[in-house]
Design a protein around this nucleic acid. Structure first.
Lengths: 337, 337
DNA sequence: TTGTATGCGTTATCAA
DNA sequence: TTGATAACGCATACAA
């Protein structure tokens, strides 16, 4: 592997001059620069970014901390679409992305912060972390510039981008209310997800607006999983036969809910209306196609990456970015008879 | 940021001793080690992996070079599922993964090899590269340990993992032939994909086995895209009204083909049988559910990662790994009447 | 068992 | 416009 030393001796100059020439400094003779560039090319030189990072104390590397980049999440499509947005923005910058896996971290004894600090990443994007994840604390205490996705927590060095989950859930439920539904069940995610709290809040708000009292037994947790939602919907429909519609906190869960409904000989949407959340690719392809709250997952990632890079490059302060959602009415909801 | 120097002075020993103590060498007094570990903890020490990599001349970093990690590919699910497999294996190793984006490389003037060399990655996994991509040459000429996915090219330092595309395509077409179809169209990917060549070969083989001559006008290229496949299927069905079935080189294209068929008032599978390739999540959810050649995308990535790590850690030579595919018969194919 | 000295490849400071 | 030298944080050969 050739270094600037080799180039220096070959070109008959000092390493300093080589460094400056190759980095485009102005205080180097045109002839000298030409010569150096030529030698560099001849020797097939590649700068060693490790050495550079070491002395400059910045790695031009961003950490991507994703919980749930696995088989199931691929089916869901949410996580990966966010990642794709992150990747798209980063690809246009000088930064590279290193993937830290948080799922199978049982094996590794290092915490995520340790990973980030050891790798000397300049900043981190964090996605899919639960509210009770100890890493949240760690990140807040460290001073690594950081952007959260779907976690409304901020500080001097932490920003976030999320969607308006209260509003989204509210619109979903209002849609059902406007269709005449009054007994509306909910299949939520899990207690450790910020978005679940917010979507439950939106559900409550909508009911309140229609003067309907909140009933705890109408709400189940489906862990954002298709199978779990199937199971929970089964019990919901059996326990609460008056229910005419269900709001699910994710499309994948809505798909599970529809399966359960069909299993119990409900017709969707005639006997049971179902609203999802996310608008993943699947939702427009299944039948009946899914009425859902659409959120721009790509933008979620793209904006997060943009925010982080701006914090890093231009010392901009972290922001709180809330994206809009949109109700997409398809065929899984209909008016009560 | 605390370094071993700080620890050394704090603990009253030399940096050498600190280094050895923290790296678990045996030739260090138990007392001393204890003291050092304690100080390290107090000072909240994180080793600087950049410095370590520099001196050890290995970064414990693997490059992931994916072409087509974008919005469309997320919908497809193929690329990301492979990535998920890679990630799963890597997560259990000491390596980290850095993502190199090859799509929007217009901006960056660096070639992928340059990126890899600069970052000093220990090895590279390469996915979704076209046959005419100049990077293929570059990689072969460099000596970076490398594993290709779905590119059957190998050398002293390059292995690959792929599926048996000829066999897979052959089985898809045999399935149609067994159902009585004789006029079988094909919507292929594009000329720059290895898998497309192989799948076309499988298509031809199957026809040959049934004594049917190959007709060039029955084969169209759909660029692995849903819209393109829609368009190509349209023209195919119009130009060749005798066609009773279509083999598509990807599920996403099969979905496009089905849309086209419906648009032209064909019933699937009654008037037109359609076989896909990949078995992406979507394919079992759409209606009619898609008969397809299932390939284990997760394993594709997992095995590639495993091969690379074994090359790196145990100096194992690169291999050629071919995975089996499986015909999944669903509802998009039926016998001719 | 511990310490001294050197080097990894690069950038930065200062003087020439 | 150029070069000598130190420094980044760590690992290691060698000496003690």
């Amino acid at each position: 592997m050739t270094t600037i030393k080799h180039i220096a001796s070959q070109a008959g100059v000092s390493v300093t001059t080589v460094s400056r020439a190759l980095n485009g400094y102005s205080d180097v003779n045109a002839e000298t620069r030409k010569k150096i560039e030529q030698v560099a090319k001849e020797l097939n030189y590649s700068p060693n970014s490790l050495a550079r990072s070491l002395v400059k104390n910045q790695s031009e590397t961003l950490g991507l901390l994703v919980s749930g980049f696995n088989k199931e999440s691929v089916k869901d499509g949410f996580t990966v679409e966010v990642m794709s947005g992150i990747n798209s923005y980063i690809a246009e910058t000088q930064y590279d992305l290193v993937l830290f896996n948080t799922d199978s971290s049982k094996q590794r004894k290092k915490t995520y912060t340790q990973l980030c600090k050891e790798r000397r990443v300049d900043g981190v994007i964090l996605q899919g972390i639960k509210t009770d994840d100890p890493y949240l604390e760690e990140v807040m205490e460290s001073d690594i510039p950081c952007v959260f996705i779907d976690i409304p927590v901020s500080s001097k060095h932490v920003g976030y981008v999320s969607t308006d989950n209260v509003e989204g859930a509210r619109n979903a439920v209002l849609h059902l209310l406007e269709l005449g539904h009054r007994n509306i069940g909910m299949i939520n995610g899990h207690k450790q997800a910020f978005v679940s709290k917010e979507r439950l809040e939106g559900y409550k708000q909508a009911l309140l607006e229609y003067g309907i009292s909140f009933k705890d037994q109408l709400v189940k947790d489906g862990s954002f999983g298709e199978k779990e939602a199937y199971r929970e919907t089964m019990s919901l429909l059996k326990e609460q036969p008056d229910v005419t519609s269900v709001f699910c906190a994710s499309d994948l869960m809505a798909i599970g809910a529809i399966s359960a409904a069909k299993q119990l000989n409900y017709c969707v949407p005639e006997d049971l209306s179902v609203v999802g959340y996310d608008d993943i690719p699947l939702s427009s392809y299944i039948s009946p196609s899914l009425t859902t709250i659409s959120q721009d997952k790509f933008a979620l990632g793209y904006n997060a990456a943009e925010m982080l890079v701006k914090m890093l490059k231009y010392q901009q302060p972290p922001e709180q970015c809330i994206l809009k959602t949109e109700l997409k009415i398809r065929s899984s909801t209909s008016a009560t008879s």
